[in-house]
Each structure stands twice: as structure tokens, then as C-alpha cells.
Computed example of a mutant assay.
Amino acid sequence: MTRLLRFIPLLLLALPLIEIALFILVGRAIGVLPTLGLVILAVVVGGFVLRQQGLGVLNRMRTNMQTGTLPGQTLFDGMLLALAAVLLIIPGFLGDFVAILLLLPPVRAWLYKTLTRNITVVQTTTSYRSASPSDATPPHINGPGTIDLDDDDWQRK
């Protein structure tokens, strides 16, 4: 893993060079105006994907929270869809290719399964715990969801 980390600066330097080379190759193959048209089309599609998929992910997260299921895969999908939209908005054919792959649900599912293979998700809940076992209920609480305050404990703004 540490060997891979050494190559990150080299990769960050190589990516713009690869994008420039792809612009030149595509420009030679189809011409300058169609190449620019593809770049503009990718920006428009990226903005549309960001808007549509973002709202869809928010709705799926809301549904997951209402049903009480963990929204892990939904959050991961949302993150990858946002990354795909950003890659489409940034000019470049390599980024567009990666973005198109990330837009495919089987690719996102495979990435999620691969990255979470060795991760165990533990669901926890929050609850009140008394400092001493003999004190079953904290002071000023009269039943579930009710907090009894004295006149000095609150103020109206």
C-alpha cells in the first residue's frame, strides 16, 4: 500500500497530460467543433445527472431512514453519482469515461461490495443510562419523552 502512495503525485501529474493527449487524438479523428460539442454536451449532462441523481439519492436515504435500515449503500451510491457528475462537468475524455462507468448501477454495486468486503457495520442507538444502577430514572423526568422543568430552568425568548 505504501508503494502505491508513492505513485499518487506521479498520477496527478500524468492525468492532465493524458487528457490533453486524448483531446488531440479526438480532435484529429472527428474535428475541432465536434470535439468541443462533446465537451459541452458532457458538461450539460453532468449538471443534469448531478441534479436528478442527487434528488433521487436524497429520497432513497429518506426512505431508508423511515424504514430503519442503514443507508450505507445509498450514501455510497450518492457519493459515486456526485463524483461522476463532477467528472462529467470537468472537461476531459478520460474523466468522462470513468464517469460513465460510475453511472452504471452494476459497477457501483461491485465497487461497494469490493470496498466493504472486510467491513462490519454495527448499528447503535442512543439511550439514557443512569450513573448508578439504583437510580432507575434521572431527576425531573416524569415518564418517557417528558421533562419537567422548574420556572428557573427555562426562559422565553
Rank of each mutant, 00 (worst) to 15 (best):
L25K: 04
V26F: 01
G27I: 00
R28H: 08
R28Y: 04
R28G: 06
R28M: 11
A29W: 01
V32W: 07
V32H: 03
V32E: 06
L36H: 01
L36K: 01
L36Q: 03
V39F: 01
V39P: 01
I40L: 15
I40T: 13
A42R: 03
V44P: 00
V45Y: 03
G47P: 00
F48P: 03
V49Y: 05
V49I: 14
V49D: 08
L50K: 11
L50S: 12
R51N: 10
R51L: 15
Q52S: 13
Q52Y: 11
G54K: 02
G54S: 03
L55W: 09
G56A: 14
L58N: 14
L58K: 14
N59K: 15
N59V: 08
R60E: 15
R60K: 13
N64F: 05
M65N: 13
Q66P: 04
Q66L: 15
Q66A: 15
Q66G: 05
T67V: 10
G68C: 08
T69F: 06
T69E: 14
G72N: 12
Q73A: 13
Q73D: 06
T74H: 06
T74P: 09
T74R: 09
L75P: 04
F76A: 12
G78R: 10
G78N: 11
G78K: 10
G78V: 12
M79Q: 11
L80N: 10
L80C: 08
A82W: 07
A84F: 05
A84W: 06
A84G: 12
A85I: 06
A85T: 07
A85Q: 10
A85H: 09
A85K: 12
V86W: 10
L87V: 03
L87Y: 08
L88F: 10
L88G: 01
I89N: 09
I89C: 14
I89E: 07
I90K: 07
P91A: 08
P91L: 07
G92S: 08
G92I: 07
L94K: 05
F97V: 12
V98C: 10
V98M: 12
A99L: 09
A99S: 11
I100A: 15
I100M: 11
I100V: 15
L101P: 04
L102G: 03
L102I: 04
L102V: 04
L103V: 01
L104E: 11
L104M: 13
P105H: 05
P106Y: 02
V107S: 02
V107C: 04
R108I: 02
R108D: 02
R108L: 01
A109W: 12
A109C: 04
W110M: 13
W110I: 11
W110T: 12
L111N: 02
K113N: 15
K113F: 04
T114P: 05
L115F: 12
L115T: 10
L115H: 04
T116V: 02
I119S: 02
V121K: 05
V121P: 00
V122L: 13
V122H: 10
Q123Y: 07
Q123I: 10
Q123W: 06
T124F: 09
T125H: 14
T126F: 03
S127L: 11
Y128M: 15
R129A: 09
R129H: 09
S130T: 01
S130C: 06
A131T: 01
P133Q: 13
S134E: 15
A136F: 09
T137F: 06
P138V: 08
